[in-house]
Write a protein that binds this DNA or RNA. Sequence first.
DNA 1: TTGGAATGTCAACAAGGCTGACATAAACTG
DNA 2: CAGTTTATGTCAGCCTTGTTGACATTCCAA
Lengths: 167, 167
Amino acid sequence: MAEGRTGSGENLLYLTDEQLRQGIEAMFFAYRGFTADPDRILTDMAYGRAHHRAIHFINRAPGTTVNNLLNILGVTKQSLNRVLRTLIEDGLVESHVGTADKRERHLFLTDAGQALEQQLSDAQRARMRAAFRDAGPDAVAGFRTVLEAMMDTEMQRTYTRLKESGA
Amino acid sequence: MAEGRTGSGENLLYLTDEQLRQGIEAMFFAYRGFTADPDRILTDMAYGRAHHRAIHFINRAPGTTVNNLLNILGVTKQSLNRVLRTLIEDGLVESHVGTADKRERHLFLTDAGQALEQQLSDAQRARMRAAFRDAGPDAVAGFRTVLEAMMDTEMQRTYTRLKESGA
DNA sequence: TTGGAATGTCAACAAGGCTGACATAAACTG
DNA sequence: CAGTTTATGTCAGCCTTGTTGACATTCCAA
């Protein structure tokens, strides 16, 4: 850590209320940009952000159970169920009764579901890639560090588990 | 910029699809944490995130017009109006007809409105402060750089204008 | 074998987005 | 001054996506 000019051995000027408020507003405006491109694609097809999230994480962990997805998404099972039902009806997601435990449903994307996932994540990654490239690798590392520290501890674990499963 | 091992003079491994996907998931989980604390306070009082946003930006720019707030928040006037109406009815916000242009309404927080704003932003800043402190000043700088690069250009301008007005 | 826990489904409601239509008052313009 | 544009507010109605409550099915353990 860099030596500061406060005498306490560390410069804490980055923790002033004004700096924190700028961080809060940056999160607000950036999140809008973050979701803007997929949102545009989705409204064309009568889907919403909730569908995107479900598709994203089913793609990330094929065969995941409804309950597992529930924990990742942090919504009620009823809320998720409505979204899943439309995705299944529309042939984007398949639900298979579990073999070991028949109460569980295992979720998979169909080819059509994968095609939509691709389209959505291409759009979202394009913006992220541009932002990362503009900012450079050191800034990206800092970005990730701060975001991880901002999560609830339970979500940190979920995030890390996903990260390691995909790497 | 650091020399990489790609031969092109720059290491672009931080731009792989897997890295971008991790960035996307980090945004998703972190935003949940970001809103969690104010959300808890708000549900106790029959308000929602929309009320929080209005209160935040009225506090940030007292006397702002409805139209200006509309541009910052990026919602329709009908949507904002519903929120403002309840805040005015409940005595948290005051609306004053403009002196120069009498069509405009200038918005201010009442004392009660400021008290709630304080309560909400204290909660949100506490989490942001903890995250910033854990991550350190360099990471925070990178965090801000990436978020700015992720915004739509119009929002970048809005964000910068707010930032400079408060500093 | 029976009662509780886990899982998933259906119904109904609320918040907060949206569009469209319309009213009013003020400002601006030819 | 007449006509148009701008800023704001309101009503009605729709959609998505969150919520709770009630309930069926399945599994497991006492």
